[in-house]
């Protein structure tokens, strides 16, 4: 299936939504200070490209760093947990606790601890993004066919060999689905971190625009933020495609042989 064949429906839907936005504002069904027109929104960006670039980059940087750390911590935790049932039972409740605690509620604490710099944003991004990574990686590592492991035992494989040649590659499809969720979470985490206290980033832009009732800038910030999430998601999908060409959900029409 070609790109156009896959992409035209969502693109068409986006165009329709965009037109609806434009029509609603052009017909002045809603006051412009509540919902700005697409034109005003783009003007807001075009009139201050440096401003937007600077803050977009700040958020991108926090997001990427948070995402990478979350992925590394998540994979490591999953590998450790799968090695030993005791470790899993000990760590799991803690991880769950870290997940259910509302990030927006503890973010101020991180500001108190780490200041107004990049620290709290990354911590919140990591906290939001690492849980799906751990869960999916644990599932992946456990998804290995037990017969495959028995086979490995009769091959005299060392634990390291079994891990690297069988367990780890088998877990990758699961890991990637977790990474995709994590990618979008990392953006949210970074912005939540910025809301609580920052002088840079899209969260900061939105908060400021909100204070000034500057809805075009607010909309611009939202738009860029969503785009950032989508881009990161697509990047992970592309990586998945690259790393797992064999993965079942990626299969195009295979050559099926008869006996």
């Amino acid at each position: 299936m070609g790109f156009t064949e896959r992409a035209w429906r969502p693109i068409a839907l986006l165009v329709v939504l965009f037109l609806a936005w434009w029509a609603v504002t052009a017909a002045e069904l809603i006051e412009p200070y509540l919902v700005p027109s697409p034109g005003d929104t783009f003007d807001a960006i075009a009139s201050r490209p440096d401003y937007f670039w600077e803050h977009t980059w700040a958020t991108t940087y926090e997001t990427l760093l948070g995402f990478v750390i979350a992925a590394a911590v998540g994979v490591f935790a999953a590998v450790v947990m799968v090695q030993s049932a005791t470790v899993e039972k000990t760590l799991y409740p803690l991880l769950l606790f870290a997940q259910v605690i509302p990030k927006i509620a503890i973010a101020p604490l991180f500001v108190v601890w780490l200041g107004f710099g990049i620290g709290p944003k990354i911590v919140v991004a990591v906290l939001m993004a690492f849980f799906p990574v751990v869960i999916s990686m644990v599932t992946g590592l456990k998804s290995v066919d037990p017969e495959m492991l028995q086979l490995s035992a009769t091959m005299g494989a060392k634990p390291g060999q079994t891990f690297w040649k069988i367990r780890f590659p088998a877990s990758l499809p699961h890991l990637f689905s977790g990474l995709k969720v994590a990618a979008t979470m990392a953006v949210t985490g970074a912005v939540v971190g910025e809301f609580v206290g920052a002088d840079a980033g899209l969260g900061f832009v939105i908060l400021q625009a909100n204070g000034n009732l500057d809805t075009p800038v607010l909309f611009a910030g939202l738009l860029i933020m969503s785009l950032l999430g989508v881009l990161l998601f697509v990047l992970v999908e592309w990586l998945e495609h690259l790393v797992l060409p064999w993965h079942a959900s990626r299969r195009t029409e295979g050559v099926t042989t008869t006996l």
Binding site: W246, A248, R251, G254, V255, T256, T257, T258, L259
Partner: peptide, 10 residues
Amino acid sequence: AYPHELSGGM
């Protein structure tokens, strides 16, 4: 060939 390209017998 990759496994998914092979029949059960193969």
